[in-house]
């Protein structure tokens, strides 16, 4: 009924991580969104006390969006292997 899912083993094993720095300081509680390759919303998380965020993803192309009062900043990234990818926002 529900056998092996060939895609599952490679999904959620990779991570996009990063930090948000505003005016020279790591920003806690900043809103960071993950969008898929079609621009569809996948997840959103506020940054940690240290201004960090992490998303568990599959291989492929992603967009990380920082939502600010003044507007949004998008960063594209590609996850190719277990090293994942890192996205830094400096505002």
């Amino acid at each position: 009924m529900c056998g092996a899912n060939p895609e599952r083993s490679q999904t959620g094993d990779y991570a996009i991580t990063g930090t948000v720095v505003v005016d020279g300081e790591r920003k806690a509680g900043a809103y960071v969104r993950l969008l898929d390759k079609n621009g569809e919303f996948v997840a959103e998380s506020p940054t940690s006390k240290g201004g960090a965020f992490a998303f568990f993803v599959a291989q492929g192309s992603w967009t990380v969006r920082l939502v600010l009062p003044s507007g949004s900043i998008d960063r594209s990234t590609v996850v190719v292997d277990q090293a994942g990818s890192t996205v830094e926002f400096v505002v």
Binding site: G12, D36, A43, F55, F56
Partner: peptide, 18 residues
């Protein structure tokens, strides 16, 4: 849920532990 959770590619939202 997100399309990846619906399809079975993920077990939880992408910002949470799987």
């Amino acid at each position: 849920r997100s399309p990846d959770e619906y399809s079975g590619r993920l077990l939880a939202p992408a910002h949470l532990p799987q």
